[in-house]
Write a protein that binds this DNA or RNA. Sequence first.
DNA 1: TATGAATGAGTGTTCATTCAT
DNA 2: TATGAATGAACACTCATTCAT
Lengths: 226, 226, 226, 226
Amino acid sequence: MSPAPGRVAKRAPTPEGRDPGPRVQGRELRARGKRTLERLLDAGAAVFADRGYHAARVDDIVKAAKTSHGTFYLYFSSKQELFRAVAVEVAAEMVDLARDLPALDRDDAAADAALRDWLDRFAGLYRRHGAFIRTWTEAEIADSEIGASGNELVTQFSRELARRVRTAAPDLDPGVTAFALVSMIERTNYLVEASRLEVDSTQTISTLARVTMAALHGTGRTGPGA
Amino acid sequence: MSPAPGRVAKRAPTPEGRDPGPRVQGRELRARGKRTLERLLDAGAAVFADRGYHAARVDDIVKAAKTSHGTFYLYFSSKQELFRAVAVEVAAEMVDLARDLPALDRDDAAADAALRDWLDRFAGLYRRHGAFIRTWTEAEIADSEIGASGNELVTQFSRELARRVRTAAPDLDPGVTAFALVSMIERTNYLVEASRLEVDSTQTISTLARVTMAALHGTGRTGPGA
Amino acid sequence: MSPAPGRVAKRAPTPEGRDPGPRVQGRELRARGKRTLERLLDAGAAVFADRGYHAARVDDIVKAAKTSHGTFYLYFSSKQELFRAVAVEVAAEMVDLARDLPALDRDDAAADAALRDWLDRFAGLYRRHGAFIRTWTEAEIADSEIGASGNELVTQFSRELARRVRTAAPDLDPGVTAFALVSMIERTNYLVEASRLEVDSTQTISTLARVTMAALHGTGRTGPGA
Amino acid sequence: MSPAPGRVAKRAPTPEGRDPGPRVQGRELRARGKRTLERLLDAGAAVFADRGYHAARVDDIVKAAKTSHGTFYLYFSSKQELFRAVAVEVAAEMVDLARDLPALDRDDAAADAALRDWLDRFAGLYRRHGAFIRTWTEAEIADSEIGASGNELVTQFSRELARRVRTAAPDLDPGVTAFALVSMIERTNYLVEASRLEVDSTQTISTLARVTMAALHGTGRTGPGA
DNA sequence: TATGAATGAGTGTTCATTCAT
DNA sequence: TATGAATGAACACTCATTCAT
């Protein structure tokens, strides 16, 4: 959820999405190789989430994956590469979620329930990937390609939301409103988790749902706004 | 064949905990020294904002401040120290702003105008400090004290907002709502700036103001919520 | 605006106190690794002996060992660590020697011959390790643990000598006398070598043996002593 | 008491003994200047003794002398310079002492008393200067000129002793014996002080006196030696 | 497919020395 | 005569990456 500001990409992006590294590249992986790859991706996700991009040591990742430096570079050509690969996986999951965002043009019980369900799914996903997502910003400074995939993520989310906004509250700027809601949803999940606030997740979801609905439907009564 | 006599090898650690630099410590600075200190703080703010905490090189900072490595360590005992100092300055400005958050318990034109003014000030400050603030997360991994001052910032903002929420919308959870609004306000400013969305800042402020007001006043009509 | 979540930032410290190097730690070394380790120890002994602790550059050591900085820190966590390791090796050899100190309670030809043999061995060892031993004092200021092992060395030597003194010359203070003889033996070897005195080692050994014997047996005849 | 092995001197020694540094050089010092100079010499002696040559920071010295870096270089052109100056002072005192070494050709009560008196004076001087003297070895590696003055010291002591040895015990090698006794006297004083041995100085002096006398007079009875 | 060992450019930091006042 | 401030070469140590087996 952290788009890159305008920077220049340093190398052409790999076209096939997840490229498995320099040597194993192309060739199909056997069962053993697949397991190693999986372990590295998991370890990467965990260590990046824990330490951030720069502070994550290849050594930490390799230890977490119970493998060696040599093996690491068999699967990924660089630390950045691994980050990208993890990012792509996380982004895919989040984009899936974005696509399932329910309609928001009505303010009835059904819509409310649907929205809550969706927020619940979001909270779940965010619990798993939030820490990693937050390191995105750091990594994109070093690698604008990473920023690009982060961009896509927010864009995707915002696009979906903007569409709902357009029909639900035509007098609001759809782009900005979408950003506002995405921001709120993502970051609130983080803040609630990080603060030691005694709030259960239902409370959070409830509040987010109500504010979202209010933003789309409880506005524009008095006058036309800016 | 050389036993150790009783010596005091290490220098005594600084008693007051947070040391503002190893040699200039305590002593009053002359005009020249003050200028140098200022240059270093400015350079730090700029370079950290641009590159992030880890990727920022002391060399970059020193060059930006048109001074030398030696001088840097005359004023700050480490890169971390400088980060802290910049963070403290930025936090002070933001906390000042937080204190000026207007009352939100009425939904009339005056309240709306006051809120917009405040959001405008926020946007201004954020344009200057946003990039630095975003690196905060990265730095706090390396230094939990930095995290603490970041915490205070959000806490301050949230506390002020929560107070308004309590009187304006008593049936909303004040803590979560405050987080939601803080999140929205901060991050929307970032997203709008980062995306190349063709939106002028009035648009953004307008939207944020309306959503905020709606969240506090345009909700709770239909039903009791969670 | 970014509070600190509960992270474990630093790596856990080594539990066993004295760490033999950061990465190779514990693991068994292959043949190649063993050779490298040996080269580093030898280089360290040589460079420390030549330049002293502080003036010895890791770069010098690495060059002498025909390896790289990276490799150095693969085997030792710091320059101090290497010094300690060398010191331990040297101390071991010297302590072995101390244990072989012959009986001195009789002043006959056999005892004299045994003492000379031992002094000869001492001179041999000292030729190899003397320069290193002299840097010990310098290093112990920076690291009291190093001082401790140096202490043990003298203690060991003195203890052995003191035992002999007690039976050979009961009216002499064994502790001080042991110190006196250890001092004499060690330092004379150094002075003779350092001065460009035209003396062959037999001369030195002879003199040391005679003074030692005289101290233990040619004393206390006339009268009162301390 | 630590002569330099054969190394090449890097710059010509200042002929006039103590040169007061680059700027004040030559010119007579006023009362104030003299006090500052004195403070610096004292501070140097203390700090070098405490930390060793390399580990002593100019900053420490300057602080101990309650003056500034700038002033330091007004009186001494370098840290080495100050060390030399201190060394010269210390050496002078020790050489004075060496000259007072009593005759040792008779083994009677008077000679014994004289020797004890002298050893007592030595112990006193050594208590003040021992720590500094021990750093000599370290400094001479960096500066062979320093080694030279150390050399002179031992040479002086040894020469005086050797003269006594020649008349007292003609069948001993005077050079080696002198070294042996000098070694013993110096280093025993150190070891007794450094070890936490419960020995008062009379004990030490007594033992040293007896061993010295025995070495010179209690030897050579049984057989011809080397 | 895997790994232990090696590498060296790069990083933060120190400190003797010089400068400006 | 004194000093606060500045300097930058030098140093110990790190870590992403490559090599040899």
